[in-house]
Design a binder for these strands. Structure first.
Lengths: 343, 343
DNA sequence: ACCCCGAATGAAACCGCTTACACGCCGGGT
DNA sequence: ACCCGGCGTGTAAGCGGTTTCATTCGGGGT
């Protein structure tokens, strides 16, 4: 046996040892109502003596509050979700709430997992392209407060976003100002995805300049695809001044391979990414990319969800947090700004 | 209001609508005991019609099982913990268990958070240098199955590790074979930490060769420190052939700065890291580092914890999973092996 | 001395589900 | 025809807390 076999002490045992009723123990521990100092001491001493651990399930059942937030994420590794998660958890735990996560991998039976999750928490935040579809979220929303982040919005529910479109347009204009004309995009612009919004921003900026994308490579955001695109560009001699990638993995792989194939970055082809991962700082030349407000997104999600659970009204409008272009060297603008390694 | 105000359907409502008792509903949903096909259908239809969502708290209370695993991590971002977490969650969810995380940040009041967590789950995995100390873990262990990973072992409890010492020794020997003699170590070797074990391995291998570390820079594993160490090495003209870093962040920052200061890596100074982060593949020259079996660690932790909860006996011996040196170019051995970007 | 009030506490009714136990029913063996 | 054994189902007792409501008790005001 891993744990001691003595049956765990209950609130009744504590009450008995302290010579009070369970109500008093409960009140003492909750710190809510008034308890006479002497009584309080007796209770606390009994708690200590019995190594009493309140049962979360019983507490949740009686109090009609699990004090837990659900977080549904795609099963993707990488700094983006890790950062989000950390910020979410920290914010939740500051408020005494715990976090139950569910990685709605496309493979499994996410519906059931999400439903079970819903039965175990006070509210759920659905992040990005997690496998839960709108219909399922709507179903859950009828029973629990719910919120979405970086994901298509549900009418009447809180929605959080990191800015994509305008930032992408800005990035594109920057590239245009640096003299690039033949600009390509790499990434799969799925309907309501971030990457889709980025492509729209790029197109919009290009259109302002009377241009259109020199090419759009619709590939998944994984390293192997970046590599493949680089090879295609060189092999098929696609004439390009710059390529805007939907994320950093893509950009890093593409740039690395371009260099291996003898292409000068950014001299011949400029490259940009999105996310500002660690590697973006360390490759040479430094990768120009976009830093998203991931921490803020995670923290805000937890805060809003807690507010909704406390009965606050949903926000009228989606919240859009600003992203920030990090100028390094691969955009070829010649004036690298910040983005250096913090000293 | 965020969610519909109609009171959520309970098992009683379902039973009534289906014309059966709550026991039958429970049995049907649990899929455990025999239920007549017709009855089952009636129940399921009632569940659907009422959009019934079982209350996890009530279920846990009655069943004396939360069906949840606790995971305590340091509040560190980076691919290591993200990968661990993903593997842990996937493995848990395959078994129908949910995962409650707690980031035991050194700052907060981790003890209380961990205790509360313990009251909400069937068992807890303590990972790496999370803020929970041995005493606290021992206290929890008296009430719940508990396991540690990449962390000092608790007598009588399961313990999982990634190999550190021998791999570090191997890495050191490799450096020696490449002709390096003056070898330094960078990282803070805290008592039971991974980094400590790595330093011991380095020292052991050096000793075999009749050497000792040319220097040990005891700094935290953050970029800024790597940068600072690089500057010291150059400014103080410390004569070094190679520097083994406790993790990749340190190695990347150090190497980048060394290069900026005109030092040839690995020509003048070889550099190695630990963890095999994404950036290790993309810097030039490619960073030689050590890949840890993080996924396996996470998955195994979940599997073992589930087993302990099911009453299995703890393992007699700690489990040590092998790490793997990824040879790239910064070790200066001239024969870069694998570690290329996956095509 | 009496009354009233508030503070501290206790009794007990839930919260929604699981499950031990009991029961009714039906079919096969004797 | 009778008995017995299972199967399918219902009854009801918890699981371990929270919270409402009532009760007790000690003072201060008049």
């Amino acid at each position: 046996m891993s744990q001691d076999s003595e049956r765990a002490a209950t609130i009744y045992a504590v009450a008995q040892r302290a010579g009070v009723s369970t109500a008093t123990v409960s009140r003492t521990l909750a710190g809510s109502a008034k308890v006479a100092p002497l009584t309080r001491e007796a209770v606390l001493e009994a708690v200590r003596a019995l190594n009493y651990l309140p049962d979360g399930a019983a507490r949740a059942l009686a109090g009609r509050r699990t004090h837990a937030l659900g977080l549904v994420l795609p099963d993707i590794v990488g700094p983006y979700y890790a950062t989000l998660l950390v910020a979410f958890e920290m914010t939740a735990s500051e408020r005494g709430l715990s976090v139950v996560i569910s990685l709605a991998g496309a493979g499994s039976t996410p519906d059931q997992a999400v439903r079970t999750l819903a039965g175990n928490v006070d509210g759920i935040a659905f992040m990005a392209r997690s496998a839960a579809d709108d219909e399922l979220i709507a179903e859950i929303a009828r029973r629990r407060p719910v919120l979405t982040a970086a994901r298509s919005r549900l009418p009447g529910r809180d929605a959080l976003f990191a800015e994509n479109r305008e930032t992408a347009a800005q990035l594109t204009r920057h590239l245009l100002e640096a003299g690039h004309r033949r600009i390509a995009f790499v990434g799969r612009p799925e309907p309501h995805s971030d990457v889709g919004a980025r492509l729209r921003g790029v197109k919009a900026a290009l259109e302002e300049a009377g241009l259109e994308p020199a090419a759009v490579f619709e590939v998944d955001s994984v390293e192997a695809e970046g590599l493949a695109v680089a090879r295609r560009i060189v092999a098929e001699e696609i004439a390009l001044d710059a390529v805007i990638c939907g994320n950093d993995e893509l950009a890093l792989a593409l740039m690395h391979e371009l260099q291996d194939l003898g292409v000068d970055v950014p001299g011949q082809i400029a490259v940009t990414g999105w996310d500002d991962v660690l590697a973006a700082r360390y490759v040479r030349p430094g990768l120009t990319t976009v830093a998203q407000p991931v921490q803020e997104l995670g923290a805000l999600a937890a805060r809003r969800l807690a507010a909704l659970i406390d009965g606050e009204a949903p926000l009228e409008e989606p919240v859009v947090l600003p992203s920030r272009i990090v100028h390094r060297a691969t955009c070829g603008c010649g004036t690298p700004g910040e983005g250096e390694i913090l000293a």
